[in-house]
C-alpha cells in the first residue's frame, strides 16, 4: 500500500489525530497516556508485591489498580498500531542503543518522566491534547513547566553532544 511506503507529513497526521481525539472526548474523554501508564505501574506492583501493596496508601487513595481502566488500552493500542505499521512499512527491526551514555540518559530521562507525570497528575499528551484545548488552568501551568524543562533539558543535551 502506498501509505506505508512514504513518510506522512506530521501536520496531516496530527489533524487526523485531533479529529479522532474530539470523538473520544465526546465519548469517554480526551487522549491521555500518563494515567494508563500509572495504572499499569499499579497492576505490575500488585503482581509483584501482592497484598503488601496495601501498605502504600497511594495505590488505594489515588490509583486503585484495575484492569477496567480505559486509558491503559490507548497505550496498548499505540504499541499495537505502531507495530503493525512498522511491519507493513518494513521498518520493524531491533534497535539497541550502542553507547553507555545513551543508556544512562534514557534511564535518567525515563525516571524523570515517570516522576514528573505523577507529580503533575498529567502527562505531555494531556497537557497539549486535553487540558489546554479545554482551557483548563492546569494546561497553562503545565505548558510553562514543560517549555522551561525542555529548555533546561536541551541545554544539558547540547553539553553532552559537545563532549
Amino acid at each position: 500500500m502506498e501509505f506505508f511506503k512514504k513518510t506522512l507529513d506530521p501536520t496531516v497526521a496530527l489533524i487526523a489525530i485531533a479529529i479522532l481525539d474530539i470523538f473520544l472526548f465526546v465519548a469517554i474523554g480526551a487522549w491521555t497516556v500518563g494515567g494508563g501508564e500509572t495504572m499499569m505501574t499499579g497492576l505490575a506492583a500488585k503482581a509483584v508485591l501482592g497484598d503488601k501493596i496495601d501498605n502504600i496508601p497511594f495505590w488505594h487513595l489515588v490509583f486503585p489498580p484495575s484492569w477496567g481502566y480505559w486509558k491503559i488500552y490507548i497505550s496498548l493500542g499505540m504499541l499495537f498500531g505502531a507495530f503493525v505499521s512498522a511491519v507493513l512499512s518494513k521498518e520493524f527491526y531491533l534497535r539497541i542503543p550502542k553507547r553507555l551514555s545513551e543508556w544512562v540518559m534514557i534511564t535518567i530521562g525515563g525516571l524523570l518522566m515517570g516522576f514528573g507525570i505523577r507529580l503533575a497528575f498529567v502527562c505531555n499528551v494531556s497537557t497539549f491534547f486535553g487540558l489546554t484545548p479545554q482551557m483548563n488552568m492546569g494546561g497553562y501551568l503545565a505548558i510553562t513547566g514543560i517549555i522551561a524543562g525542555a529548555w533546561v533539558g536541551s541545554a544539558i543535551y547540547k553539553r553532552i553532544l559537545e563532549v
Binding site: 534514557i106 530521562g109 524523570l112 514528573g116 498529567v122 513547566g145 525542555a150 533539558g153
Partner: peptide, 12 residues
C-alpha cells in the same frame, strides 16, 4: 511536574 518531565523527555 511538567518541568521535571520536560528535562526527562529531552534526555530520553
Amino acid at each position: 511536574g511538567l518541568f521535571i518531565f520536560g528535562i526527562g523527555m529531552v534526555l530520553a
